[in-house]
Simulated assay, not measured.
Amino acid sequence: MGSDRNEHEPEEYDPEEEFRDPESDSLTIPSVSTEDAGDGLRSEIRADIEEDRASEPLIPTDETDVPPELLETFWALVLVINGALLTLSLGVLFLVFEGVSRVSGVLLVVGLVLTGFAVRRYRNYQRRDDASPDADSTPEPSTAPPADQDEEVDGDEETS
């Protein structure tokens, strides 16, 4: 099949034509003048950036603000939940594409076991955290009467 162009059609505009190099078979990239962007301003900005980097780190490396038990539990849960999601997803995919098979069953069971393990570990940590007394969260003594003694009952009051 030849060209579908009619001889009366105008030539199509080629946006790259003005950048073609007649001596080679490639495009030439125009250069941009950088004379206006003085080196003085650039060095001042660079000095400010380096000063900010030296004064305070972008990511704090001190991990003392998190208790080590919480940090260990967090990362353990992250790994277990990731494993559970992976095995459950693969189990469902094998189940859908291969039908009921031993591989899909094993993957689904492993995923459910890992999910149960993650829930159990999370609840155990919550119980330990709730049971441990914190120095910051000690309740202040209250002067209010206990909840079951809010109102005194006199013999003169009517009961309904």
Rank of each mutant, 00 (worst) to 15 (best):
E44T: 06
E44Y: 07
E44S: 11
I45T: 04
A47V: 08
A47G: 06
A47Y: 01
A47C: 07
D48V: 11
I49C: 11
I49T: 03
E51Q: 11
E51I: 10
R53I: 15
R53E: 14
A54M: 10
A54T: 03
A54L: 13
S55D: 12
E56N: 09
P57V: 15
P57D: 12
L58N: 03
L58W: 06
I59P: 01
P60D: 14
P60H: 09
T61F: 14
D62W: 05
D62Y: 05
D65Q: 08
P67G: 14
P68E: 12
P68M: 13
E69Y: 02
L70H: 04
L70Q: 05
L70I: 09
L70K: 06
L70C: 10
E72D: 07
T73F: 02
F74D: 07
F74H: 07
F74Y: 10
A76H: 03
L77G: 01
L77R: 00
V78M: 12
L79I: 14
L79F: 13
V80I: 12
V80Y: 03
N82K: 06
G83L: 03
G83E: 01
G83H: 02
A84Y: 02
L86P: 00
L86A: 09
L88W: 00
L88M: 08
L88I: 07
S89T: 11
S89L: 15
V96K: 09
V96E: 10
F97G: 06
F97R: 06
F97Y: 08
E98Q: 08
E98W: 03
V100W: 11
S101F: 03
R102S: 13
V103F: 03
G105P: 01
G105R: 03
V106H: 04
V110Y: 04
L112S: 10
L112C: 12
L112Y: 06
L114I: 02
T115F: 07
R120I: 13
R120S: 13
R121F: 13
R121H: 09
Y122E: 08
R123Y: 10
R123T: 07
Y125F: 15
Q126C: 13
R128V: 11
R128K: 10
R128N: 12
D129I: 08
D130T: 04
